[in-house]
Write a protein that binds this DNA or RNA. Structure first.
Length: 466
RNA sequence: GGAGCCAUCGCCAAGUUGGUAAGGCCGUAGAUUGCAAAUCUGCUAUUCAUCAGUUCGAGUCUGAUUGGCUCCUCCA
């Protein structure tokens, strides 16, 4: 397995801390709103990573946190009158449900900031004791970046000159402009605070992840975890700060490898809350099936930016349709063993920093070849069994192709419509038998206007929702 | 102002260590079909934004130019 390390900026062989085991920690969402396509993409990227590692025989431990204390959540609390817990529970469940529909299961470890306050406190305390962190008069606790000579080695973004045109607000209480808050003291009585030895307040964003990693992962004397992941925007300052805190607190590096996924753009524009063009997973799922969305979102390499648009989505759906049409041809049968060459090729592609394009190209080659062989010999039972095994292999590795193929093509059709469609097909068949092609074509047109495509096969007429 | 990324067929998109351009969609010709659809087969970039350099050889390395984009502020 090779992965691209976005800190070293090169592809590296994956050599985990403990042989055959992989510990991954991904920055999860701040739960004050529904998940958008960007969350989905990040989640999907690391889901593919975990699936690939598992397929290669690694025992994977996936951690993904929920930031459930944050200014925006508090704002929502104040705006809605609901409790912090009500709000965060709601959005955590909403996130999990969306991801489940996209084929991403729960992480093995799902820490919440509110469950990690002790770990946060002890890490901050330790840093204060070493004078790497300091408390200012307001009660805020800052991290002294000048104490870490390696500060900047993660993002390579910290220049020599401190006095650049950075948009970072200059706080006179800070020792250095780049220092960041580990702990924010309560500003008012309405604030949501936790009592700590240094002040009443709440944790800063960066410390949460560091503390949660230390709490849940063992690591060794050099690294806490194997892979730390997240969106490309988190590289700086979030991951830089995380790495620095952990380095100073633990005396070793936080993560052996760093992976960052690219953005989802909508019509070429960055999707962000401030631009107001967020595309929520829930909204997308109203229109498209979860697997179709998944198939689309994983079709572009995880490091590239992803430009979401409907035309490409439909294109990618057509590719998935081909897989399911093949599945229709081989079902019902019992899967045997997947074709070794095929399995090897697909795995090889995924082993190369999750090269999904090459993997999917190989899948399509398999589809074409199998269709060809099935055209020649429609009753090749061995081939059918192997093909089904191939599809099951793909489903396990990529999370696509796992549905029952007939229902895949009939998603969103209710029973009543289904009965009607089947009646029309029956009527058309009898018209065809009587060679009344005008009538049969009229029926086909009627079905077509209902959004139903039909195809005459050796085993009778089948239909699909377009 | 600082840091960095990207530019491959009409569209989407691969292309570690330089060796002579995957795959899909669309289009097109054919097989098949009552006609379609589905399926299969053939065709579809002497060329990788531009210019220069290194090299026997560059989409792949170096430099410059042009055009997109991101981060430096909460952000997946």
């Amino acid at each position: 397995m090779h992965i691209y390390d976005s800190v070293k900026k090169t592809k590296l062989p994956f050599e985990p801390i403990v042989p055959h085991k992989a510990s991954i920690y991904v920055c999860g969402p701040t739960v004050y709103d529904d998940a958008h396509l960007g969350h989905a993409r990040s989640s999907l990227s690391f889901d593919l990573l975990a699936r690939t590692l598992k397929a290669l025989g690694y025992e994977v431990t996936m951690g993904k946190n929920f930031t459930d204390i944050d200014d925006k959540i508090i704002k929502k609390v104040q705006a809605t009158g609901e409790s912090l817990e009500q709000i965060t529970t709601h959005y955590i469940n909403s996130y999990k449900e969306d991801m489940r529909v996209l084929g991403v299961g729960d992480a093995d470890i799902e820490p919440k900031a509110t469950d990690s306050l002790e770990a946060i406190e002890s890490m901050i305390k330790g840093l204060i004791d070493k004078d790497i962190a300091y408390v200012v008069s307001s009660g805020d606790v800052y991290f002294d970046t000048s104490k870490d000579s390696n500060y900047g080695t993660i993002s390579h973004q910290v220049g020599e000159d401190e006095d650049n045109q950075s948009r970072v607000e200059h706080n006179s209480q800070k020792r250095n402009p780049k220092d960041f808050a580990l702990w924010k003291a309560c500003a008012s009585k309405d604030d949501i605070c936790f009592e700590m030895s240094f002040s009443n307040g709440r944790p800063g964003w960066h410390i949460e992840c560091s503390a949660m990693i230390e709490k849940h992962f063992k690591g060794n004397d050099k690294f806490s975890i194997d892979i730390h992941g997240g969106g490309a925007d988190l590289l700086f300052p979030h991951h830089e700060n995380e790495a620095s805190q952990s380095r100073c607190a633990t005396g070793h590096e936080l993560s052996k490898y760093w992976m960052h996924n690219g953005f989802v753009n909508i019509n070429g524009e960055k999707m962000s809350k401030s631009l107001g063009n967020s595309f929520f997973v829930k909204d997308a799922l109203k229109v498209y099936d979860g697997e179709i969305l998944r198939n689309y979102l994983i079709s572009v390499h995880y490091r590239n930016d992803f430009n979401f648009n409907e035309e490409d989505l439909l294109n990618s759906k057509k590719r998935l349709d081909r897989l399911y049409r093949l599945k229709k041809r081989v079902i019902p049968t019992k899967a045997s063993k997947p074709n070794i060459a095929f399995q090897k090729d697909v795995s090889k592609a995924m082993k190369d920093d999750l090269n999904i394009s090459v993997a999917l190209a190989r899948v399509e080659q398999m589809i074409s070849q199998t269709n060809d062989r099935l055209d020649e010999n429609p009753k090749d039972k061995g081939l059918k069994k192997e093909t089904l095994a191939n599809i099951e292999f793909i489903d396990k590795l990529l999370g696509i192709g796992g549905q029952e193929p007939f229902s895949y093509f009939q998603i969103g059709i209710d029973k009543q419509t289904k009965t009607k469609i089947e009646a029309l097909i029956e009527a058309r068949d009898s018209a065809k038998k009587e060679k009344d092609y005008r009538k049969s074509d009229t029926i086909r047109d009627e079905l077509s206007s209902m959004g139903i495509a039909i195809m005459d096969t050796a085993n009778g007429t089948v239909w699909e929702k377009i």
